[in-house]
Structures are given as C-alpha cells and as structure tokens.
C-alpha cells in the first residue's frame, strides 16, 4: 500500500509542478496578450475597461468618503485658527476686487459694443457637471482619475475637466455611471496653449510627473517665470482662455509649467459638457472625403 502511494506521488508531484508552471506561463502570456490587444484594438478595449471600472466606482465612492471628511475637518480646524488673519486678508482682497469690478464692467460694455460692431460669431456655451474624484493614486505610470459621473449625467468622451483653478484634463473613457479623466500631466496629453501676456503659441505636453513642458514654440521667444499660461483654443477642442498653469522654470529650450491646480488635492471637478459635438466624427469626415474623391 505504502509502496503504491509513493509511486503515485512520484508521478503526480512533478506533474503538478509542471501543470502549475504551465498555468503561470499561460497567465503571463494572457496578460501580455491583453496588453497587446489594448494597443491594437484600443477603442474596444477602452470601452470594456470603462464598463468594468464602472462596477467599482460606487464602492470607491463610499470608501473614499471618510478621507474627505477627515480632510474637511482638519481644514475647518485650520480655518478657525486663522480666522482673524483670513478676515483681514479677505477685506483687503474685497477692496481690490471692487476696483476690478469697476474696470471689468467698463470693459464688458466696451467688449459687447465692439462685438456687435464686428458681428462676431458667438462661442458655444456648455453646461457644467460636477463630479467627485473617487480614485486618485496612479503612481508615475498612470495619470488619470475615476469620476463618479458618466453617460447618464451627460458626460461625453473628450469633454474638458476643470478644477477650482483651471484645466485638469480631458475625459478619455466614459461608462454609464463613471468616467475617467486623463490629466494634463499624462504623457499622452498634448494641448495647444498661449502665454497669456505675450501671446506666444506652444504645445504643452505631460511627462507623468508633477510638471508639464512646453514644446513647439518660436525659438526666439523669451519666457519669464510666473507668466500665466492659458488654452489657445486652436484645434477647437479646448475653449480659448482657460487657465492652465504658470511658467515654473526656463532652461535652454526647456520650459517647465506648474499647473494651476494641485491635482493631488482635488476632491470635486467640473466637467464642461459642450452643447453640440465639437467635431464631426472621423467616419463622416471620411465619407465627405470619399465623395470628393469620387466626384473628381
């Protein structure tokens, strides 16, 4: 009996280790295959990813709540400590803002009059959808957040996401009740920007670190630290004039930008959903092109 048992073990044990090795290898290959598929069939995989992530958003939404409560408690404690200084600062700021209000009113009227004179085409107006950031951490290899607003709330792919101090990123995936915003710091992110004062055009690219970089600008242009950077509106994806950040450092040919939003601290964001689609879809464009070619 004992002899038979050991002989079974002698065959079974190596077999078991072989099977487990085979399983490990096949799972490894499967993971690699999924990644490769994501590169080839990116649209379809993106859709599946969005739908699957949608399942976890309610859970993440609930378990991230206590952290926000702790933060708001700490913040209100801090506010209470510095209530006198804050009051003084706010009074000062109020005075300054009142002066600005006068100027702005005057400029608004002037602007309206000039627009009427030129018969200018009005910009599209959008609506804002507020959403909570439910997953935040990504590490250096992923710069995106999951938001708890999706198709049912009127969010579309490509919508612009704003924080409390300017642009945060764009919606890259959208499912029924959730969406993913790809941040400006993501290495895929490229947006046309302007230096607000000098009107120098550039493209701002992300590098998966806290600061972004300017490229494709006129080499003769001069930058100074602290200048505000806004969206230029070229290409029609971003509306012009939205604050993006400030110039942080200027080296030889390397202009780094500090974003105006502290992305790590964002709790709520606004998604700017434009009235109509900004672009004709690629398919319609292709049809128009085909028609043109056929007519010729």
């Amino acid at each position: 009996m004992e002899f038979r048992r050991s002989s079974i073990l002698r065959v079974a044990l190596p077999l078991k280790s072989l099977v487990s090795r085979f399983l490990y290898l096949s799972l490894f290959i499967a993971a690699f295959g999924i990644m490769l598929l994501g590169k080839i069939e990116s649209q379809r995989i993106e859709k599946i990813t969005a739908e699957l992530a949608d399942i976890f958003v309610p859970l993440m939404s609930v378990i991230s709540q206590p952290i926000d409560t702790i933060h708001s408690t700490i913040q209100s404690g801090r506010d209470l400590m510095s209530i006198r200084e804050q009051n003084y600062m706010l009074l000062q700021e109020n005075l300054r803002l009142k002066q600005w209000q006068q100027v702005a009113r005057k400029l608004e009227i002037e602007n309206l009059a000039l627009q009427k004179l030129l018969n200018i085409v009005k910009e599209k107006k959008g609506k804002f959808i507020s959403a909570r950031v439910v997953t935040g951490a990504g590490g250096p290899l992923a710069s995106s957040f999951l938001l708890n607003a999706g198709i049912v709330d009127g969010v579309h792919k490509g919508n612009i996401v704003l924080g409390d101090a300017g642009v945060v990123g764009r919606i890259s995936q959208v499912a029924k009740g959730s969406s993913r915003v790809t941040l400006l710091t993501d290495f895929n992110s490229r947006i046309p920007v302007l230096i607000e004062k000098d009107r120098i055009r550039a493209i701002m690219v992300g590098s998966n670190s806290a600061k972004t970089q300017l490229v494709h600008f006129d080499q003769s242009s001069k930058f100074s630290i602290g200048e505000r950077i806004v969206t230029s509106g070229h290409g029609g994806v971003f509306p012009p004039g939205l604050l993006v950040g400030m110039i942080d450092s200027v080296d030889v040919n390397k202009v780094r930008v500090k974003l105006s939003n502290n992305l790590s601290r964002l709790e709520y964001v606004s998604i700017l959903s434009l009235e109509g689609p900004n672009f004709k879809s690629l398919a319609t464009e292709q049809k128009v092109l085909n028609r043109l070619v056929n007519n010729e």
Partner: peptide, 25 residues
C-alpha cells in the same frame, strides 16, 4: 494561486487606469 494574482492585477489596472494587463504582468 496564480489566477487570483491575475485577477488582482486586472483590478489594479482598472482602478488606477494603467493599460489593461500592465499590473497583471
């Protein structure tokens, strides 16, 4: 077991937005 590691990797990818399969590997 291996397959649970596979699932956990997929979950990590879904949550933080890395390409699907990245954290699985």
């Amino acid at each position: 077991p291996f397959y649970s590691i596979f699932l956990l990797g997929l979950l990590q990818d879904l949550l933080i937005g890395t390409p699907l399969g990245f954290y699985t590997l």
